[in-house]
């Protein structure tokens, strides 16, 4: 196990920010800490990096307890949210700084800096100052500065939040590609679920200083273990409904559930992904189309089931031509049931 956090807690300003948190990241994997602002993800990352000392618990890297070790002596390297490049130094000096501190020979420093700049495709900017290069390039310099130290654990603190949407997507792919090529254990902090789901081996969804679920992205999306994760990750319809074996009833409306029987009955919070709502002209529960939102390769329908609102993602020929105000008929192909905030495991 490359990185292990055991029962780590941190109180700041009288508020518990991280509450007895456990996390394990295997060697070479990329794990994301995903959650809303104030959930404790950056605090957790700063404790891994040594910038904050936990009030309780341990941080172990390759089995060695590094909880009390200062950041400059930890085998970690961090890419900061605003890149934190030193503006008075050139790209070369920014990257070479850590190597100089390790008293490496000048030739070796030069060669390692050039190698890492080649990896991030920025060798031509070796003598530029940070102010002379774009945000995306600065981000890659920050990544190169961290990678050149060959840390055991790479920490990324919302590294893409300052980039525009297009560039974010490209740099995100670059990070994943470089991380996999170098094979470095990485922890990424983000509040962007798209980012977390698309590049992580595992995602830890955090709320209130704790991890609600730590699983591969597909599991997080398809089987959110808590109502919070279901609501936070992706779009989820959450209906308070009475569950029967083959349908769920909300108010007077009975929505048929296709496929496997639900296996339980009674009052539940029912979670339905919009892509699991099937719309047809005649079969299923009637619902009024309140809004039609074209999303490019699919269409989002906002449907009213009495007082309840339901979102459905439909493809071409599957109801995308329904006008606002029309009556659609819906079925559910897959439903998740929650009681007291926890997923019902069939």
């Amino acid at each position: 196990m490359s990185l292990r956090i055991e029962a780590v807690s941190k109180v700041l300003g009288g508020r518990t920010i991280v509450d007895s948190l456990d996390l394990e990241v295997e060697t070479g994997q990329l794990a994301s800490l995903l959650g809303p602002s104030g959930c404790g993800k950056t605090t957790t990352l700063r404790m891994i990096g040594g910038f904050l000392r936990p009030d309780a618990g341990q941080v172990l890297i390759d089995g060695q307890d590094v909880t009390a070790i200062a950041p400059e002596r930890r085998p970690t390297a961090m890419v900061f949210q605003n890149y934190a490049l030193w503006p008075h130094m050139t790209v070369f000096k920014n990257i070479a700084f850590g190597l100089k501190l390790r008293r490496m020979p000048r030739d070796e420093i030069r060669s390692r800096v050039e190698d890492v700049l080649r990896t991030v495709n920025l060798l031509h900017h070796i003598d530029s100052h940070p102010g002379q290069i774009s945000g995306g390039e600065q981000q890659r310099v920050a990544l190169a500065r961290a990678l050149v130290l060959e840390p055991k654990v790479l920490l990324l603190d919302e590294p893409l939040s300052n980039l525009d949407a297009k560039l974010r997507e490209r740099v995100r792919d670059d990070i994943r590609e470089i991380q996999q090529r170098v094979g470095i254990t990485t922890v990424l902090v983000t509040h962007d679920q798209d980012e977390a789901l698309s590049i992580s081996d595992k995602v830890a969804v955090m709320t209130g200083g704790r991890i609600d679920q730590y699983d591969p992205p597909s599991t997080i999306y398809r089987a959110p273990r808590t109502r919070f994760v279901a609501d936070f990750v992706g779009t989820m319809n959450l209906l308070r409904a009475t569950v029967h074996d083959d349908h769920v009833a909300t108010g007077d409306v009975k929505i048929p559930v296709r496929g496997a029987a639900l296996g339980v009955e009674g009052e539940w919070d029912v979670g339905v992904r919009p892509e699991d709502v099937r719309v047809s002209p005649s079969e299923g529960a009637p619902a009024q189309v309140a809004r039609v939102i074209p999303r490019g390769h699919y269409t989002e329908l906002v449907l009213m089931l009495g007082e309840q609102r339901l979102r459905a993602f439909v493809g071409p020929g599957s109801g995308d031509d329904l006008p606002e105000g029309a009556t659609a008929h819906i079925e559910i192909s897959r439903a998740l049931l929650y009681r007291e905030g926890l997923l019902h495991q069939a």
């Binding site: 390297a77 961090m78 934190a84 030193w86 390790r102 130290l149």
Partner: peptide, 22 residues
């Protein structure tokens, strides 16, 4: 910004070295 100091320490600089270098 604090992050510039943190970045120097993260690279291996002691506090006094971070002050001198940054």
């Amino acid at each position: 910004p604090d992050t510039l100091i943190d970045a120097a320490r993260d690279a291996g600089a002691s506090m006094s070295r971070a002050v001198r270098a940054v």
